[in-house]
């Protein structure tokens, strides 16, 4: 690995920084004198935490609930998307016509329709129909309080389960298409000699994948894969259109009831940024650790 380059301040940097700062100061000044906007930051805290009189302690409120919902959706999206991507990525490199076609068709279909359409398709055509017919909703409404509580913790409160499943599945399918391509490129990056050596010692096709190709391929694609995981967090905002109470949806709710547009969206932005930035720092650290480990 090349040694890290030392940061150096050059004249051009100083000039540019000065210009940008001046521009920003000017813009803020213009906003202050021209736009009439009554800042009311004091309304924000109660949407983060509110005092519950029954429990006599502070509990999470609208925005915080949305924040945890976004995390839950992202985790499910990442888990399911990775499973889908792994399977489809492996299908993409098979020699069989059907397997190859299935993988290709999936990727092309998903990548060529807007994600919002995917979310609606899932919500209206699949989940609302399918879950009813499978009787899952009935089963859950009659379930005991223990099971209901469990479902609330790992998914969502039972009455919104349809929305949650549609949301998580459409996120997973959407991200899965990109993960498929990442996995495929990882497999294709492994030199032919590795396949041949695995073949020559008699490993079955499955074992060749399992023990020789995939471990190397996945290690090679960890950087783009972690990028895709972070994208999943951001992309999850799209499911606000089917009323899943995640961060963006909750933001709209707060905005509608308070009219504190700027304050709300500044808070929402900061929360998303906190989440994705800390993930990218953590992933970056892990990757560096793995690289220095070998």
């Amino acid at each position: 690995m090349p040694a890290e380059k030392k940061l150096k301040f050059k004249l051009i940097d100083i000039v540019l920084l000065t210009l940008i700062t001046a521009a920003l100061v000017y813009i803020v000044y213009r906003i202050k004198v021209t736009i009439r906007y009554d800042w009311s930051w004091e309304i924000i805290p109660k949407y983060l935490f509110r005092f519950d009189k029954g429990k006599s302690r502070f509990v999470a409120s609208t925005i915080t609930l949305g924040f945890t919902m976004t995390i839950k959706l992202s985790i499910w999206g990442i888990i399911l998307g990775t499973i889908i991507g792994l399977i489809m990525g492996i299908l993409r490199v098979q020699s069989g016509l059907f397997a190859r076609f299935a993988g290709r068709a999936y990727v092309e279909l998903i990548r060529n329709i807007p994600p919002i359409v995917l979310v609606f398709i899932f919500y209206f055509f699949f989940s609302s129909q399918l879950l009813d017919h499978l009787g899952i909703e009935d089963a859950i409404t009659t379930a005991g309080p223990g099971l209901k509580r469990f479902i609330s913790i790992i998914f969502i409160e039972p009455k919104l389960l349809n929305e949650f499943f549609s949301a998580a599945l459409s996120i997973a399918l959407y991200e899965g298409a990109y993960i498929t391509e990442i996995v495929r490129s990882g497999i294709e990056s492994i030199p032919k000699g590795q396949w041949e050596a695995a073949h020559a010692i008699g490993l079955s096709r499955f074992s060749q994948f399992r023990h020789i190709i995939l471990p190397q391929a996945l290690k090679n694609v960890l950087p783009p894969l972690s990028g895709q995981f972070i994208s999943t967090i951001k992309d999850s905002a799209i499911v606000s259109v089917i009323s899943v109470p995640e961060l963006s949806f909750q933001g709209m709710q707060v905005m509608a009831s308070t009219y504190a547009t700027f304050e709300t969206w500044i808070v929402i932005t900061l929360l998303y940024f906190m989440l994705t930035f800390s993930c990218s720092v953590i992933f970056g650290k892990l990757l560096r650790k793995m690289q220095t480990a070998d």
Binding site: P191, G193, Q194, E196, A197, A198, H199, A200, I201, G202, I212, Q216
Partner: peptide, 14 residues
């Protein structure tokens, strides 16, 4: 495949 061992020019170790 299991009865015939092969050694390659570029070793191809894992």
């Amino acid at each position: 495949r299991t009865e015939v061992g092969m050694v390659f020019q570029n070793f191809n170790l894992f």
